[in-house]
């Protein structure tokens, strides 16, 4: 690693100020950033750890909406939303491994927007709202492509608000070494329609499968997806699977998610 300092502000305001310095970078749980630093893929002068900011941690619930602080770990989400939003809890409880879940945070995962991460699918399928240090961003406007989001320099995710669906499920086909999604599909059924978000598949990161949403909004059953498929164009091909294989998996996993929801 290159050399840098670590600072640990205790409030969002102090963290925003610290991130305004030259070559400053936010450090969430570090489960992606620290391995990247070891590979010298980043050279910050100062890392601004968000782990000491109590105001961005924890889970609360208000009138059908779940609010999860941006600094809340996957382990905490897995434990604390198990009764209010079981599909989200199950997703969080299956990220990485226990040690990763004890450090990695929802805000870090969303800000990183890894094309094979689980949280982007949950946020997009739920129609979540990403609350930052200076505004609110709808999930539909947040994810802008591979490792790219609507976040500006120095903007911190302070919370994520999830409308709680009537039914939901997330099915991840794991890449067995990394446990990232080779493909993952999150299906959420609301009173006014169904949302389907796919991660791990597209070269542009997480996306909504709108044809499946239309079919499922009329008939929420696996059979409603018969005959529908995602074209392989624009899907990822790597040593773990071809674009055509990923396209096939999207159809299979969406049916499984509907059946499980």
């Amino acid at each position: 690693m290159y050399s840098f300092d670590v600072v640990r502000p205790k409030s969002v305001a102090d963290a925003v100020a610290a991130l305004g310095e030259e070559e400053a970078q936010a450090l969430g749980g570090g489960q992606t950033l620290i391995p990247s630093l070891k590979q010298r893929l980043a050279a910050p002068a100062v890392l601004v750890s968000l782990a000491s900011i109590d105001e961005i941690k924890g889970v609360s619930s208000e009138g059908g909406t779940l609010k999860i602080g941006g600094g809340t770990t996957h382990g905490t989400v897995a434990r604390e939303v198990a009764s209010s939003y079981p599909a989200l809890a199950a997703m969080a409880g299956n990220i990485g491994d226990p040690a990763v879940r004890n450090r990695g945070t929802i805000g870090g995962s969303l800000a990183n927007n890894d094309p094979a991460a689980c949280y982007p699918a949950a946020a997009l399928a739920s129609g979540a709202t990403i609350v930052t240090s200076n505004r609110e961003i709808a999930a539909d406007d947040f994810f802008e492509g591979l490792f790219t989001t609507a976040l500006e320099e120095g903007e911190i995710i302070t919370a994520v608000q999830f409308p709680i669906p009537e039914k939901a499920a997330y099915i991840k086909f794991e890449q067995p070494a990394s446990r990232f999604a080779l493909v993952g599909v999150f299906v959420a059924k609301f009173a006014d329609g169904v949302r389907v978000a796919v991660t791990g598949a597209s070269e542009d990161g997480v996306f909504r499968w709108t044809e499946a949403e239309a079919a499922l909004s009329g008939d929420f059953s696996a059979a409603a997806l018969d005959g529908l498929s995602v074209p392989a164009d624009g899907l990822m091909t790597d040593l773990h699977g071809s674009a055509a294989y990923r396209a096939h998996l999207i159809g299979v996993l969406t049916k499984r998610a509907v059946a499980q929801a």
């Binding site: 670590v6 640990r8 620290i34 990763v100 450090r103």
Partner: peptide
């Protein structure tokens, strides 16, 4: 760290203050 298992290679000493 504070009763939870974490990977020692993926946390800075400064974070454990």
């Amino acid at each position: 760290v504070n009763g939870e298992t974490v990977k020692g290679c993926t946390i800075f000493a400064a974070e454990c203050d």
